[in-house]
Measured scan of single mutants.
Amino acid sequence: MTGIVKWFNADKGFGFITPDDGSKDVFVHFSAIQNDGYKSLDEGQKVSFTIESGAKGPAAGNVTSL
């Protein structure tokens, strides 16, 4: 699925993605970002991701920028 990064705190390594389908915002951890180098996201960035079952509920996985 796709969405827009609502916010991401690079110091803490997590944030939230707002899915394009209008569903509830999804937690994203830096370890789910699939790019080389520094793993961070920018507010407003368009991303593709999967929904994984995290310890505290749904979380984004396999996050790639579009």
Rank of each mutant, 00 (worst) to 15 (best):
M1L: 12
M1A: 08
T2R: 08
T2I: 09
G3R: 00
G3F: 01
G3V: 01
G3Y: 01
G3K: 00
G3C: 01
G3L: 01
I4M: 09
I4D: 03
I4G: 03
I4P: 01
V5E: 00
V5F: 02
K6I: 06
K6L: 06
K6F: 04
W7D: 01
W7P: 00
W7K: 04
F8Q: 01
F8P: 00
F8E: 00
F8M: 02
N9W: 11
A10I: 12
A10V: 12
D11I: 14
D11Y: 15
D11K: 15
K12Q: 09
G13H: 04
F14I: 08
F14C: 05
F14N: 02
F14P: 00
G15K: 00
G15Q: 00
G15N: 00
F16W: 10
F16D: 00
F16I: 06
F16H: 03
I17H: 00
I17K: 00
I17C: 01
T18N: 05
D20N: 08
D20Y: 08
D20K: 05
D21H: 07
D21C: 09
G22Y: 06
S23R: 08
K24V: 12
K24M: 11
K24F: 09
K24N: 12
K24I: 11
D25L: 07
D25H: 05
D25Q: 07
D25T: 06
V26S: 01
F27T: 02
F27L: 04
F27C: 03
F27N: 01
F27H: 02
V28P: 00
V28I: 07
V28G: 00
H29W: 05
H29K: 03
H29T: 04
H29D: 04
H29C: 05
H29G: 04
H29V: 04
F30G: 05
F30W: 15
F30H: 09
F30E: 06
F30K: 10
S31K: 09
S31N: 07
S31W: 07
A32Y: 04
A32W: 04
I33E: 02
I33K: 02
I33N: 03
Q34Y: 08
N35V: 13
N35F: 13
D36H: 11
D36F: 12
G37M: 09
G37D: 09
G37A: 09
Y38P: 12
Y38M: 11
Y38T: 11
K39L: 08
S40E: 06
L41N: 01
L41C: 03
D42R: 15
D42H: 15
D42F: 15
D42I: 15
E43K: 15
E43S: 15
E43R: 15
G44N: 06
G44M: 05
Q45K: 05
Q45M: 13
Q45W: 09
K46W: 12
K46G: 07
K46A: 11
V47Q: 00
V47R: 00
V47F: 01
V47N: 00
V47Y: 02
S48W: 14
S48I: 12
S48Y: 13
S48L: 12
S48V: 11
F49E: 00
F49M: 04
T50L: 08
T50C: 09
I51F: 08
I51A: 04
I51Q: 05
E52G: 08
E52R: 11
S53E: 13
S53G: 11
S53I: 14
S53A: 14
S53P: 15
G54V: 06
G54L: 08
G54T: 15
G54A: 10
A55E: 12
A55S: 12
K56V: 08
K56Y: 14
G57H: 08
G57D: 04
G57L: 06
P58W: 09
P58R: 14
P58L: 13
A59K: 14
A60E: 01
A60F: 02
G61E: 10
G61F: 14
G61N: 13
N62D: 06
N62H: 10
N62F: 11
N62I: 09
V63E: 01
V63P: 01
V63F: 02
T64S: 11
S65M: 15
S65I: 15
